[in-house]
Design a protein around this nucleic acid. Sequence first.
DNA 1: ATGTCTAGTTCCAAAATAGGACTGGATTCA
DNA 2: TGAATCCAGTCCTATTTTGGAACTAGACAT
Lengths: 158, 158
Amino acid sequence: MVKRTSLRDADCPVARALDAIGDWWSLLIIRDAFSEVRRFGEFQRSLGVAKGILATRLRNLVERGVLEIAPASDGSAYQEYVLTEKGRSLFVVVAGLRQWGEDQCYEPGEPHSALIDNETGQPVGRLELRSADGRVLGPLNTTVRLAAPPSARPHGRA
Amino acid sequence: MVKRTSLRDADCPVARALDAIGDWWSLLIIRDAFSEVRRFGEFQRSLGVAKGILATRLRNLVERGVLEIAPASDGSAYQEYVLTEKGRSLFVVVAGLRQWGEDQCYEPGEPHSALIDNETGQPVGRLELRSADGRVLGPLNTTVRLAAPPSARPHGRA
DNA sequence: ATGTCTAGTTCCAAAATAGGACTGGATTCA
DNA sequence: TGAATCCAGTCCTATTTTGGAACTAGACAT
């Protein structure tokens, strides 16, 4: 009767997304996966997370289709966890978090890492949401249009 | 000695960001805040979260400077929680989660909400990371360049 | 002044986390 | 070939966090 609330079937895409990947470790695992981290032990050392928790998270991410298990690329009998297409499409989310962290979570002079465009060696541009015709959009220019499937619900809900 | 690990001083912007806002309820609170939800009771009803948890989360978000407390806009003696500039700059993160949720967390035919450009009434465009000169970048085109402040650390770490 | 609404706090049981010990198969070394 | 070590987990326990309900004090409405 206390059951950690599930948002799997929430009628908001943000809630569903968070249900799948919205905890600390999962996002960090995904971040690492974007940097070629693949093996259980690599994740464990990189994150410093308890093995039990890591095992749970990896299992969940595989179940959700964000990661998949592949044979080890080094020819050993072990397995690896690699991003699926679904997982790779989280790139902008991780990039968004990174930019926000860089901008808002460091002291003014404090040095931090940066995301670099391989082509030019320059930092990447700022992530922006644009309209279909190219205008940059902010919170004030947009509205959530509710889906109205079985019986329309008048107010936004989880 | 078990203390939920803190990533406040991690040397990765993603980790720091997650430390501030990287849990379920915080992100959902922020999502709601983008839709003009302001009052304790409104958040509580919208999210269906336990009041104790909501109180903790709001306090934390205020501490972190994501929300701030303002006098109630309806003239009553109560207070409201509104996004700061720091909080509003999470817009692309929430938008990214929303798009991912829409794309990946619904069954093919299943209807869902959409983010609409107020100007045109059309759905907003896809969030894309671009290079300084405008090329669309994916995970393969980018690399994290580590900060090398006190003594350079050779490998990515939490 | 009485009753209700708002925004919490407090308390409890159940669940999740952190950490360490343990295990069994794979790999390496001699 | 066998022993030592590494890898990828599982299992156990203590502590923390969550979810839910009950309680409270200060607005507000009548």
